[in-house]
Write a protein that binds this DNA or RNA. Structure first.
Lengths: 391, 391
DNA sequence: TAAGTTTGTTTAATGAATTTACAAACTTTC
DNA sequence: GAAAGTTTGTAAATTCATTAAACAAACTTA
């Protein structure tokens, strides 16, 4: 049933507000937190002391006086525990160990050939195990594992469908949880990427952003009012399958003229094959474009146009403040950005466009893995701020 | 800053939970509410008695015993106050007086020729005045006015842009508030329609629905987790301007191939003119189709196809549980539904479609006006208790 | 050195929920 | 029809997080 109100809830709310300010505005004093939040000094003091008790906050010494007693400055203790983030890709696994602030402590990257589901999961297990073993000693240890996957998940952490891996109904969360006995969160790689960008990338101060992952297909993570939008049944953002040509070519999803048939890596390589007369690879196309090959540059520019078509749809449909383009094709920003922006200028409604930013990701291929780690940290705080005192 | 927690908040939360159950599950006893919510009987008793004190709840006598003392049944007192809902259309105004349950008490419908902004607003004022005067005596009187408008609004109740009225920057909320000194809420007609459908129509038990208003243009109201999704800058759902043909004909919005160029009433009439060689009107086309005119039926069926194209995009983009089609064209359900469903069957991804319903509105042209009244009621409860969101 | 400011803690008060107890009103059972 | 058990709703005592007020410590300024 719905959450009712009691004193426990009040404390949980206030404690997480206090912790939030220590995490984002640190170093900060108790008095300043009281001033910002409207809580009394006594309340803040009490909550801060509990947070110190539980190792999540440290006092780092006196700050500058503003005409009276010097304030004791507080800092979030990012090393009270560690999280693991994983980007389970189609051809590789990228995994990081981060502290509670999201700072990367160590990183592993391994290739896989997707020989079997079990083989990949086994590789995943050994990769995670190595990172766990590399973690420094800490109060809470490894507090969780977040995994971004190239497919659709349900609420129970099952990977329902991952077309580019040809996986179906893999109980990934349960599997990894049983291996390590640590809380595991599974989510779509674009959702994870969106969270990564919001926490650590260009979207830091934004509550409404759309992260578009342009890879073999196109996926999107949508953050509304600071929260991921998952749709009714736990997955949305199948934005790659928004049709931009109702009578266009058939997509494997059953529809016609889907955006990702025009604006994905797969689409680019297919066009390159048709126009250049030979199978192409992304890195080769990139170096050719870099060398000034006009035919290849034209290919990228056309891709930029098609990206723009879909971005206009996203603007009109979601009215975000921020659109961040990421994924493998983010490396082609140089040639994609201009035609994309030109199209936006011409085609998007002026009102939704007013307060909008469109940028390529600054985190390169780490948006997803950082977001995944962030899922684990969020889950930890969601479960802890309530019962951390133990009473 | 963010809302902090205190005893007041706890009480607000619990009081609104209790009221929510009385509103939705009535008649209901105190004991049953305690059982459902997890609150203690003492707490429920105390809160219920305050609600009775404030006239929002009535005791209606003893219910059936289940083996012990008979329970005292509680009922929400819908007549403690009245709300006004308005659908400000392009050619007419529909306004209703409802009680707090949304039951329509009286109704007014007037035509207008949009001679000037001031003339329409004056007509709006006299219409509202008549409804106010027709309201029965009650504890709280007229608790608010909600207005659905065919355009884009900002948070301050300004009608920024209404293309089909040719209005721009009209401070409608302020204007009506100053006339009646009653709280006024302004919102887009599709947003109001979505809320109307959720409260009173087909979407009653749904937290995630999209209401598509097919009128002269196409608008949409999107409800996510029981709340309207407004986008970053207060308006979204410009779904009519999602392109379904990236190189299609130019739309007045600047883009090419927008959905509403294919699937709106305007589009239908334009096609009718081209194919039948004479200017057409919707009601005439409807009667011709009714009479079995195959050419006209084919027009509707093609419209159904184009509706489906956009609906597939909405399914893939928002993954709602429920899509409700409303607006003037809802009257053509008979010919639109079949090609629409056929298209969905063929083109939408199986997973998002699984738990999805697509229906035409049952409220005919009252979705918007009922939703608008509901806005006023919600605002009233938000100020007295705390927002009542429907699970 | 004295006066004023700022920080953070202590103490008492507030009030909403919980726990426990209980009376009243019913039904069931023998 | 009386006794036993159940259900409903209220009352009294307790709990606990917040607030308000007072205060000591630490610092700046004049």
């Amino acid at each position: 049933m719905k959450q009712t109100g009691d004193l426990n809830l009040v404390k949980k709310i206030n404690k997480s507000i206090v912790l939030h300010h220590i995490r984002t505005d640190s170093p900060i004093s108790r008095a300043r937190i009281a001033e910002i939040t409207g809580l009394t000094k006594a309340t803040v003091s009490s909550l801060v002391n509990e947070l110190i008790e539980s190792s999540l906050v440290d006092e780092i010494g006196a700050g500058e006086s503003s005409g009276g007693r010097k304030p004791m400055m507080l800092l979030f203790n990012g090393t009270a525990g560690y999280a693991i983030g994983v980007d389970l890709g189609v051809h590789d696994i990228l995994a990081v160990l981060t502290d509670l602030t999201g700072k990367v402590i160590s990183e592993k990257r391994v290739q896989h050939d997707n020989a079997s589901v079990e083989a990949v999961i086994q590789l995943l297990r050994t990769t995670i195990r190595e990172l766990i073993d590399s973690a420094p000693q800490s109060t809470y240890g490894i507090i969780g594992i977040g995994i971004g996957v190239p497919g659709i998940c349900d609420d129970d952490g099952n990977l329902l469908f991952a077309p580019n891996l040809s996986w179906e109904n893999v109980p990934l969360q349960k599997d990894i949880e049983e291996t390590f006995h640590i809380p595991v969160v599974i989510d779509n790689e674009a959702n994870a990427g969106a969270v990564g960008e919001k926490q650590f990338g260009a979207g830091k101060d934004t509550a409404n952003l759309v992260y578009i992952s342009i890879g073999i297909g196109i996926g999107a993570g949508i953050i509304i009012k600071g929260e991921l939008y998952r749709g009714a049944t736990g997955f949305s953002g199948e934005i790659g399958h928004i049709s931009i040509q109702h009578d266009g070519p058939k997509c494997r999803c059953g529809s016609l003229g889907c955006w990702e048939l025009y604006a994905s890596e797969h689409a680019l390589l297919e066009q390159a094959r048709l126009e250049l007369g030979e199978p192409a690879q992304l890195d080769k196309l990139l170096s050719k474009a870099e060398a000034g090959d006009e035919k290849v540059i034209a290919l990228f520019e056309r891709l930029g146009y098609y990206l723009g078509v879909g971005v206009v749809n996203i603007i009109n449909g979601y009215n975000p403040e921020f659109i961040i383009l990421g994924g493998r094709l983010a490396g082609a920003e140089k040639w994609l950005m201009k035609p994309l922006l030109q199209l936006l200028e011409k085609r998007s409604l002026p009102l939704p466009r007013k307060r909008l930013n469109v940028e390529f990701s600054q985190l390169s291929d780490r948006s997803t893995v950082l977001g995944a780690a962030s899922f684990a940290v969020s889950k930890f705080f969601a479960s802890t701020t309530v019962s951390i005192d133990g009473n």
